[in-house]
Design a binder for these strands. Structure first.
Lengths: 159, 159
DNA sequence: CGTATATAATAGCAAATGTTATTATAACTC
DNA sequence: GAGTTATAATAACATTTGCTATTATATACG
């Protein structure tokens, strides 16, 4: 393993290296994609975690924070802070749960609803740009494969 | 522990939703994978960014910080701090560049070399476990597709 | 040459995130 | 039904990361 290829700007990766960089590759794509989305979502005045919350909430109004944390795969404490901010910015509200005095039920406020459309529009566009070089079948494949890996990792995490 | 249960009020993910969640999916997989790796890498006493540095450095000893930042797709300021820590822990050293008095050249210290093998071993194992449900062709495909998206996003970022 | 601009590394502060502990309430057990 | 254990939400603190200068040196230009 002493191949020295200080050629130009991009090192030509050996097959073994390519495999080994899988984790870093995932991480880089994820980071780049998030950055690209945020660049376009700046006008919304929403961070990425806030968008995630909004998305889940729009399909599950009235859920508890604990359930939202589950759905969105977010640490409950992190979620508290995201929600604090969103409440303060009048995107959402917390109502007391009549059946469980510990819990809150989460609702979108009216102001959030028009934003949702714009958010999805931006998301759709970013995704299409990021996947511009993939055929429709390949896009489907990529998602499918990622979902499989996600499932495996979720199971491993639980142990 | 979250995706496919649709226990109570969660509707089955419509095809459009699946697409739309691409970004979040990427992010989740990346986070889960990183967490899984770190869990196994704890014995190395290395963080993930440190592992990344080590990997790149092992194939490119003598490069500058700026170049390493490029290679590893890391913010230069973030890299400084990672390197500070690694220097202090005796994994690497910074030597003055004789040709450019602003720059440092980075080298692994002897102590780091045996660690590298263990690191790759852990990485290989984690990757195999994460991809356990994929065929060899699918693994290759996944990497290929991610690389394509990475390329596209890198180009978009530059603009 | 000497001045303008770019680059390598870093400092210092603000924002985000992870970690552990705390409080209130619910659910379970004997 | 009294005491233990589990859960929802949060607070307080530590760590990490991102952002905006700052300094020293190198390169480009006229």
């Amino acid at each position: 393993m002493k191949t020295n290829e200080a050629t130009t700007s991009a090192p030509a990766p050996a097959p073994a290296e390519r495999l080994r960089n899988f984790g870093f590759l995932m991480r880089d794509v994820s980071r780049l994609y998030a950055a690209y989305f945020q660049r376009h979502a700046r006008e919304l005045e929403l961070t990425l975690p806030q968008c995630k919350v909004l998305g889940h909430l729009s399909r599950n109004e009235g859920i508890s924070q604990a359930r939202l944390a589950e759905l969105s795969d977010t640490d409950p404490m992190t979620l508290v802070r995201t929600l604090d901010r969103m409440q303060q910015d009048h995107w959402i509200e917390r109502r007391a749960d009549p059946a469980d005095r510990r819990a809150h039920r989460l609702y979108l406020r009216e102001a959030a609803k028009p934003i949702l459309n714009r958010m999805w529009k931006i998301a759709d566009q970013c995704r299409q740009e990021a996947m511009a070089s993939l055929s429709p079948e390949q896009r489907e494949q990529l998602i499918e494969l990622l979902e499989r890996v996600h499932g495996t990792l979720s199971a491993l995490e639980a142990k």
